[in-house]
Simulated assay, not measured.
Amino acid sequence: MTEDSSPSARKIIHVDMDAFYASVEQRDDPTLRDKPLAVGGSAKRGVVAAASYEARKFGVKSAMPGVTARRRCPQLLFVKPRFDVYRSVSKQLHEIFARYTDLIEPLSLDEAYLDVTADTAGIGSATAIAEAIRRDIRNELFLTASAGVSYNKFIAKVASDQNKPDGVFVVRPGEGADFVATLPARRFYGVGPRTAERMSALGIHTGADIRAQSLIFLEQHFGKSAQYLYRASRGEDYRSVRPDRERKSIGGERTYAEDLIVDDDLRNALEHIIDIVWERIDQNSTQGKTVTLKVKYADFQQITRARSVSPPVQTRADFERLSRELLEALLPVVKGVRLLGLTLSGLESSPGGLIHDPEGVAESSPVQESLAF
């Protein structure tokens, strides 16, 4: 951090669209409104990319096999994803963000961090800005968004999930440590099911339990994650909102509610990940030399397979071909697959492009004290 920085004085909003893909489909097709809907997959095969809130009431969620989703909700409707439409709506969304700040860090098509410390729009408070953004989204895009408002990125992101859908949650300076103490350990970044099980065995169930441990204890049991857990459990996160940070790779992965073992199910799951990752590649106007496939099996064994090419991957067709070839070389699988992921690395910007790093960690920048929460 720079000496004149004051992370606790930042005003950060995390905006997260509500069931984005499904909500866009329901907006554009009135016959789908108020009905349980799954984007992607099908009743016979494939994987759910997104689920409407009506479907979530039945336990349908993203990354779930279509067969399981239909079993949980027999009346579930399936529609194919339209990523060109989602990208177009995302562009409109970011135009709304830009009315209130230049410091926008996109995480995906439907969520972003905004640093509104400077209050360039003269709204008066971070909470009022969050409400203004949500109002613009509702009135102009006919969609809803939830927002978390706080003094750092970690708490803002967690807070945006507190009053979903269509809500705001504010955590002010001085409230962060108490708020984090009540969180289940599973809500901390990087704490997946396996890590949560290890924590539970150690008697760690909440943020307060993490905070009660020494840094040495956390390092012994959680290695590289120890520093993060130690700070986050105290409501600390020094990352600044960085719109334009160079990154080394772009990727995406999905963990599945049920292990995949049928070849066609794996192929369909891969197509979904190709859609997700290419969307991010296209959004960043970049190209790369290496495609890597990540596979985690039911027994948690993890492998990666990679292909490097020259010239770099420049088209979706090239990315699809390399990704499929990497998967086909592993088929058939003899044990279930619980996670698939793809990464494009060795990045370089396309002409006129700019590579973003939505998860970049950087030094703090000077902030102003004028804006209230």
Rank of each mutant, 00 (worst) to 15 (best):
H272N: 09
D282Q: 09
Q302H: 13
T292K: 08
S310W: 04
P243S: 02
D263A: 13
R239T: 06
V277L: 12
V277S: 10
H272E: 10
L293S: 04
R321G: 01
D244L: 13
R316I: 10
D263F: 01
P351H: 09
S349W: 00
S233F: 00
T304P: 02
D282G: 12
D263Q: 06
V309P: 01
T286F: 01
G352F: 06
D265K: 00
G288T: 02
K296T: 09
P243L: 03
R239K: 14
T343P: 00
V295H: 00
G341C: 05
S240C: 15
Y256D: 06
E325D: 13
L322W: 01
L330D: 07
S285W: 03
R239S: 13
S308R: 08
Y297M: 09
R239N: 13
E258S: 10
E320T: 13
L326A: 06
E325W: 04
Q283E: 15
V277E: 07
V334E: 09
H272I: 05
L344P: 04
V241F: 02
Y230W: 06
R316L: 13
L293R: 09
D237N: 08
L293N: 04
Y230Q: 06
D318H: 02
H356V: 13
Y297C: 03
R234N: 13
Q283T: 14
I303L: 10
E236S: 05
D263H: 01
S349Q: 14
K289W: 00
D299I: 15
